[in-house]
Design a protein around this nucleic acid. Structure first.
Lengths: 98, 98
DNA sequence: GAAAGTGCTTTGTTTTTCAAAGTTAATTAA
DNA sequence: TTAATTAACTTTGAAAAACAAAGCACTTTC
């Protein structure tokens, strides 16, 4: 038998990054503010997790406007989608023995 | 919409504890050594994660023998099964929108 | 009787997480 | 026009968690 946790992606150990990704899988663009409110996080905390995901190239940023207000939105990348799916598959395989 | 990660159990953020639990769900008794080898961990690291799970009363310990050798085995508790299931349900709900 | 195995505990370092406060820039209210 | 607000950060620092390595008590095997 092989190590059941070896295929889990370390980046997704964090519930917050998991939450961000799961939200971005279904919504192709979400604002910083919406993420912050949905996940109930402080600015700094969210920003640093987003940064981790960005470094990994799992998400990308778009700086734009809503009306005349600045609005930063985030979306998932192809790589991000793949990695997230792979992680979920690994999770599923791990617990599929139920 | 409500916070998608609120129902995830913090104890299962750890890949290692997740791995231990998923192994104990399908095998009703696993030895310290087997867990250590399967998950590729050092003694101290495994022991401390097992301790966390034990504190939460999600697993319990049995000190016994295999032949004449000491053997410590672990099994999941009813509470542990419930908590693990609840966590998996929360995870599933979170990503079910796929 | 020396070496090795089991299952820890202790110690200390590294990594991760997080909140709080400060920052920049634009925007609206007074 | 100045003050206050909002958005989206960055920086700082503290607390928590993860982890490896070493030590330890006990037993067993060589």
């Amino acid at each position: 038998m092989k190590n059941p946790i070896a295929d889990l992606n370390k980046i997704f150990d964090s519930r917050i990054r998991l939450g961000v990704m799961s939200m971005l899988v279904v919504n192709n663009e979400i604002s910083f503010n919406d993420l912050k409110q949905m996940l109930e996080l402080t600015d700094g905390n969210l920003a640093s997790h987003l940064n981790t995901l960005e470094q990994a190239e799992f998400i990308k940023v778009h700086k734009g406007f809503i009306g005349r207000k600045t609005s930063t939105t985030y979306s998932i990348t192809v790589l991000g989608k793949q990695a997230f799916k792979a992680h979920l598959d690994a999770l599923e395989k791990m617990i599929k023995k139920l």
